[in-house]
Simulated assay, not measured.
Amino acid sequence: MSVMGGSLTGVMTYINVGYGNTFYSDWLSSFLAALILMPAGLLLMGLITKFVAQWLPNTNAHARNLVTGGVMACMMESIMAFSTTANTLGFSSSADFLTGWLFSFLAALPLGLALMVVMSLTVKPKIELYLKS
């Protein structure tokens, strides 16, 4: 989770402010905000998993995990893009904030989708087995 949050907030910070003198401090504060959101992400993953299981009851576990991963990637990245943009650009201009949020979300989306697919197909099933035992 730390690797995911660190890499995604790094991409988002770079998109918002570029690589300059304050990049590392901006990235670190955005990363710490993402770490605070991680427990909410785990709770959200459980809720989405239940919803997808009810919505797609006749599909195999891999397909449901891929759907869960895609939805999770979009939702968590949206939240991380919001907190990173708020941290780096602030709310002084709503147009700048919205543009920064959208660009950082779209720039990090391919990486987020790739990481969530790997997590959904490898880590998530192991966590579910552990919780069932």
Rank of each mutant, 00 (worst) to 15 (best):
S93K: 01
S29W: 03
V67A: 13
M12H: 04
H62A: 12
L37Y: 09
M116K: 03
L37H: 05
M1D: 02
D96H: 02
C74I: 12
F51E: 11
T9Y: 01
A33E: 05
S93V: 00
L42Y: 14
P125K: 02
G6K: 07
K126R: 15
G6P: 02
L111Q: 02
N87M: 07
A63R: 13
I36Q: 09
A107S: 10
A95T: 13
A107P: 00
V71W: 02
S120L: 07
V123K: 05
S104W: 00
L43A: 15
L8A: 02
E128S: 06
V117D: 04
I48W: 08
K126N: 14
M72Q: 04
A81T: 04
M1A: 06
M76F: 05
L32N: 10
A61L: 12
V123M: 12
L8I: 09
L109Q: 01
K132Q: 10
S30W: 00
L115C: 06
N65V: 09
L111F: 04
I79P: 01
L115T: 02
L131M: 11
L102M: 13
S93R: 01
T99R: 10
K50L: 13
M75H: 04
A63Q: 11
G10K: 00
D96G: 01
M75S: 15
T68V: 15
S30N: 03
P125G: 13
E128L: 07
L47M: 14
L43E: 10
G20E: 04
S133G: 15
A63K: 13
L106I: 11
L113F: 07
L115P: 00
S30M: 00
G70R: 03
E77K: 11
T9E: 01
A81Q: 08
M38I: 15
N58F: 13
S133W: 14
G69L: 11
L35T: 09
K132L: 06
S94I: 12
S93W: 00
L89S: 10
E77V: 09
E128H: 03
S7D: 02
S133V: 13
Y19K: 07
S92E: 12
F82G: 01
G41Y: 00
F51K: 12
L102R: 13
G46Y: 05
I127Q: 04
F51I: 14
M119K: 11
P57H: 02
T13F: 00
E128T: 08
G6F: 03
W27R: 13
C74T: 11
A114G: 07
F31D: 03
G90N: 03
G10N: 01
L106Y: 09
Q54F: 05
L131V: 09
S133Q: 15
G18P: 02
F82H: 04
Q54C: 07
F91R: 10
P39T: 08
L66H: 05
V117M: 11
T84E: 01
L28I: 12
L56N: 07
K126G: 09
A107Y: 12
A63M: 12
Y14S: 08
S25P: 00
S2Q: 06
G70P: 02
G20K: 04
N65W: 09
D96N: 09
F91Y: 12
